[in-house]
């Protein structure tokens, strides 16, 4: 009985936390699924967003300005990776790792120390762990996070329906074709990285407020958590619809499931230190499934395209 009570008690927090990570997962979806790039910048830009937000709020700036600056800072991180990748020709993964490493120093400088707290009773925060139950509906962090997710989905749904958004999707789908159709694929790639990291930083800004602090290591392994959310969401809800907006929502819902499972595991008494190991394994297994399927479980395939090699 105690176990169930403690799980139920921690559930609202997990849902809010999951929705906030859902914003991050949606950002990651843009690079991972649409641009077809594995962008490791996010491990750094998540913290950058949190750091900028906390430092600005504690310096007396308003919530809107702080959030906007967080997003802009995240977009700058994406721009850096984009320039490493497209202008300097560094492979995307390495470009992301370089930016991520550089951001560790940058984030420390923004925060001034490794951990900067922000007190929810002193500042009027948008979301906080205190406001997940027994509060008026419109102060509830779950609702606020859910509205943020929906707004982002609507905005992205519009953006990827525009000419510019379509050229971004084409870039991820077929680089050759995109160039042949006159798309400057360097610009679209950089733009995608910027939008993605802007969202990741926004997620960081929410997360820092929710937890009551920004920590220089808060983004460690964020990409794995984000991928886990995308994969879980896709596996659970993917069959329902292939609509783009719905796909984005499933990524966010995947984040929610991830954090609920996380809470359950903690309530059961499993060592929380093992959780990153567990997430990495789960993501590895899911990423391997398509390959293993085609390698070991498919019927013999006739190679069509290779038959006419010149």
């Amino acid at each position: 009985m105690d176990l169930i009570t403690s799980i139920l008690n921690s559930l609202p927090g997990a849902v809010a936390q999951g929705l906030i990570w859902g914003i991050m997962a949606i950002g990651l979806y843009i690079t991972f699924k649409i641009l077809n790039v594995s962008d490791l910048t996010v491990d750094g830009s998540l913290c950058t967003g949190g750091a900028v937000c906390v430092v600005m709020l504690t310096s007396g700036y308003g919530m809107v300005e702080s959030l906007i600056c967080s997003v802009l800072a995240g977009m700058l991180c994406g721009l850096a990776t984009g320039i490493f990748h497209t202008v300097m020709g560094i492979p995307a993964i390495l470009a992301g790792i370089l930016t991520q490493l550089a951001l560790y120093s940058v984030n420390l400088k923004i925060l001034g120390k490794a951990n900067q707290a922000i007190n929810a009773s002193k500042y009027d925060l948008l979301v906080t762990i205190r406001n997940v139950k027994n509060v008026p509906l419109f102060e509830n962090s779950i609702l606020i996070s859910a509205i943020a997710v929906l707004l982002i989905v609507v905005l992205l749904y519009w953006f990827f329906g525009t000419s510019l958004g379509c050229s971004l999707r084409a870039t991820g789908s077929n680089l050759n074709m995109s160039r042949a159709q006159g798309i400057n694929t360097k610009i679209t790639t950089v733009l995608g990285l910027m939008v993605s990291n802007g969202l990741v930083a926004l997620s960081g800004a929410f997360l820092a407020q929710f937890n009551g602090y920004a920590d220089v290591s808060m983004g460690r392994g964020a990409i794995v958590t984000g991928l886990a959310a995308i994969i879980i969401g896709g596996a659970v809800f993917g069959k329902i619809s292939s609509n783009f907006g719905f796909r984005l929502i499933t990524a966010a819902l995947g984040g929610v499931i991830y954090w609920i499972v996380y809470q359950v595991i903690i309530c059961i008494g499993l060592d929380a230190d093992l959780l990153k190991l567990l997430s990495a394994l789960v993501v590895a297994v899911f990423l391997a499934v398509p390959y293993l399927k085609s390698e070991y479980f498919s019927k013999s395939k006739v190679r069509k395209a290779g038959a006419h090699n010149a």
């Binding site: 990827f160 329906g161 525009t162 958004g165 379509c166 050229s167 991820g172 077929n174 995109s178 006159g182």
Partner: peptide, 27 residues
């Protein structure tokens, strides 16, 4: 020559915008 993850009509829309600016108008 085509983007496999996009619809037939979306591919054609990409092609008809060849050489034109791609902004925030509908794709």
């Amino acid at each position: 020559g085509t983007a496999p993850e996009m619809e037939i009509q979306e591919n054609m829309a990409l092609a008809i915008r060849r050489g034109k600016p791609r902004g925030l108008g509908w794709g």
